[in-house]
């Protein structure tokens, strides 16, 4: 088994774990220049978007719940790069990054956060509840774990229709303890459904570290009793994610049933905007940021290989900031939904 190529967050794996195969044997192809540039731009868009959302929250333009994705960008960007038109995506409430990666408009997401009529849910859903039929994004779910069964059903529908699409159901290390996750696993394997369960293990469920709430902290092993293959992936390295996603997608498209990808990742910010994250040390966060930042990794590579100059990267940053600034302007200027919207979309 070849060693991992990148400095990997998986160093936190305990030595006592049962031996198992590393995904791709721990190796993966380098990105082409184009792939690296794309990944850089997309991850940066999510990062800047989230930073702006955090600011708007602080200024009182966004109220209620707002869960930022900062630190985890490589997961959705790497996964999305392996998908094709028609593949479905579904996730929980930490969903802004997923939507941007799916190509949903920054304006639509930001205006939903501020509760305006131009938001993707007309302002009625808020940060946790957005959807896009066009981009095959099935939400945006505030109830922890609920999306896992829905994602399984999407895969069932693919199978039923005889297409070769896959559904990607994202959920957290905390969500992985909901009973319905295992009910879903069983059905998915029983019926050989093309679903990729992406467990975003960012080490915490709200204020509770993984080890405080999980008997099996290696989430890639959570499908063992259903014979669902599972792999741990360095979720901070977009190349590792993409490589894992490619294999998982191929597995599903070939009719081999579900597969689990545990993404070892990290959220830099608190659970939500109202969480000062006192349950972990500043050092821990700083160490992740300085040693494993998904965006810095790509940036360093681009510069090292001479694929982009400092100026070119600045230009990308500017373009991204423009998109984000535009979305923020829109999200503040757009009116709130009309009172007549109160009763729409409940029943036909």
């Amino acid at each position: 088994m070849a060693p991992r190529k990148s400095a990997s967050v998986s160093s936190r794996k305990s030595a006592a774990k049962p031996a198992k195969k590393d995904f791709n044997g721990g190796t993966f192809a380098e990105f082409s220049k184009e792939e690296d540039l794309n990944a850089y731009r997309e991850m940066l868009l999510i990062r800047r978007f989230e930073e702006k959302a955090g600011q708007l929250y602080g200024m009182g333009f966004i109220g209620g719940f707002c869960h930022l994705y900062i630190g985890q960008e490589a997961v959705v960007v790497g996964m999305q790069a392996a998908l094709k038109e028609g593949d479905q995506v579904i996730t929980g409430y930490r969903d802004h990054g997923h939507m941007l990666a799916c190509g949903m408009s920054a304006r639509g997401v930001m205006a939903e956060l501020t509760g305006r009529r131009g938001g993707l849910s007309k302002g009625k859903g808020g940060s946790m509840h957005m959807f896009s039929k066009e981009k095959h994004f099935y939400g945006g779910h505030g109830i922890v774990g609920a999306q896992v069964s829905l994602g399984t059903g999407l895969a069932f529908a693919n199978r039923y229709r005889g297409n070769d699409n896959v559904s990607v159901a994202y959920f957290g290390d905390g969500a992985a303890n909901q009973g319905q996750v295992y009910e879903s696993f069983n059905m998915a394997q029983l019926w050989k459904l093309p679903v990729i369960y992406v467990i975003e293990n960012n080490r915490y469920a709200m204020g509770t570290a993984v080890s405080r709430a999980s008997a099996q902290t290696d989430f890639s092993q959570r499908g063992v009793s259903f014979n669902i293959p599972g792999f741990q992936v360095d979720g901070m390295d977009v190349r590792a994610v993409k490589a894992a996603a490619d294999e998982a997608v191929a597995h599903c498209r070939a009719g081999k049933g579900p597969i689990i990808l545990e993404m070892l990742t990290y959220r830099y910010r608190g659970h939500s905007m109202s969480d000062p994250a006192k349950y972990r040390s500043k050092d821990e966060v700083q160490k992740m940021r300085s040693e494993h930042d998904p965006i810095e990794q790509v940036k360093a590579r681009l510069m090292e290989k001479g694929w982009a100059s400092e100026d070119e990267l600045k230009q990308i940053d500017k373009e991204v900031r423009d998109i984000v600034a535009d979305s923020a302007d829109f999200a503040q200027a757009d009116p709130e939904p009309d009172a007549s919207e109160l009763y729409t979309d409940i029943l036909l």
Partner: peptide
Amino acid sequence: GWDTPYPHAQ
């Protein structure tokens, strides 16, 4: 409360 889900805006 109105017979609707609890809206975010409004």
